[in-house]
Design a protein around this nucleic acid. Structure first.
Lengths: 180, 180
DNA sequence: CTGTGCATGTAAGGAGTTACATGATTCA
DNA sequence: TGAATCATGTAACTCCTTACATGCACAG
């Protein structure tokens, strides 16, 4: 193996940006709001990160400036190279295992506090899961779903979130009983 | 607000190390193997990271060297300050929302590939969830569970993993039908 | 003419990964 | 003595977050 040979790291923000621009061109500011609206629960991103990534993507030829507007606004569009990179990531790259979970990490260590405190912590996990369930159900009502692809895959993600939250709530209810 | 005022970032590796040392003293090498065995699916950590964190924790007075062994082995033990920090993290700090999920991020963008490819990707998510279910079921059989606290909380985490994997498999089965 | 929102960026630092690097001990 | 294992550490890099910083445009 060569001395310099890494360039992995997964870099999913890059692909999140490419995916959004594949859907529709937009400026950094646009993307920021789209991230807040649609992806806050899947892949949060900050303003700094977005502008930095847009710069790198442009340098790499994966996006280009489609138009410039007032206040220095730069509207980006994905290029063919960018689309190719996105499709490659979607299809060819191994997604890797389940992500880190700080909440679950704590459960491992609940032996370091009193059973009452442990029970309280598990119960609060259940409560926040229940709150998320409600929020998602509400969200589902406010979105007007179409028949297009974006709606289809958006529904898939929303359904995943609902099932995940329900699973966590049920687990927490079960776990509280175990601690007793 | 003051100019220099941050020091958040969550730093969960720190607490993972404290939690392990609260359970039982050990060297960096010991912890490395314990991480591989017990926590690979919850909070993976590399050798570099562990030794770095042990150094920082010792400098912060949260752990101390209990004994030195052959080959420069340093066995660490958690201090009272470290226990306090661990308990504080367990009880008082907000765990934050659901973590990033690269797998789910992709689902958002499956509109960029053909329906057949999208279906294939979702199906592979289900398949890897099924494989994880099997692995966890096998793991459950090989561990001899006791009545102690560690076994209790370990079982809770394992159960979470089982439910999560089952949820993801069922979701994938459902989602494959939606894509058709 | 002033506030609100639009719009873009940089700097500093923590967290995590990979690769590089070294050396001691034990056992066959 | 040679291989495997024990054992610790550093360097370079990417990713992510927070805070700092600037300026234009438009509506009231």
């Amino acid at each position: 193996m060569s001395i310099v040979e890494c360039h992995d790291g997964r870099m999913s923000l890059r692909h999140a940006v490419l995916g959004m621009l594949a859907d529709e061109p937009g400026s950094g500011y646009d993307l920021l709001k789209r991230f807040e609206r649609a992806m806050a629960n899947v892949w949060p991103a900050t303003q700094s990160q977005l502008y930095g990534e847009l710069g790198k993507l442009e340098a790499a030829g994966m996006i280009h400036v489609l138009a410039e507007g007032p206040r220095g606004r730069k509207e980006y569009e994905i290029t063919e190279a960018g689309l190719e990179e996105l499709r490659h990531w979607l299809i060819d790259v191994d997604p890797g295992g389940p992500p880190r979970s700080a909440g679950l990490l704590r459960v491992y260590f609940l032996g370091s506090v009193s059973p009452a405190q442990a029970r309280g912590y598990v119960a609060s996990m259940g409560e926040s899961a229940r709150a998320r369930e409600e929020r998602l159900a509400e969200l589902e009502g406010t979105i007007d779903w179409g028949d297009d692809n974006q709606s289809l895959y958006g529904r898939l993600v929303l359904e995943w979130g609902k099932r995940f939250s329900a699973m966590q709530r049920e687990w927490a209810e079960w776990a509280v009983k175990q601690v007793e």
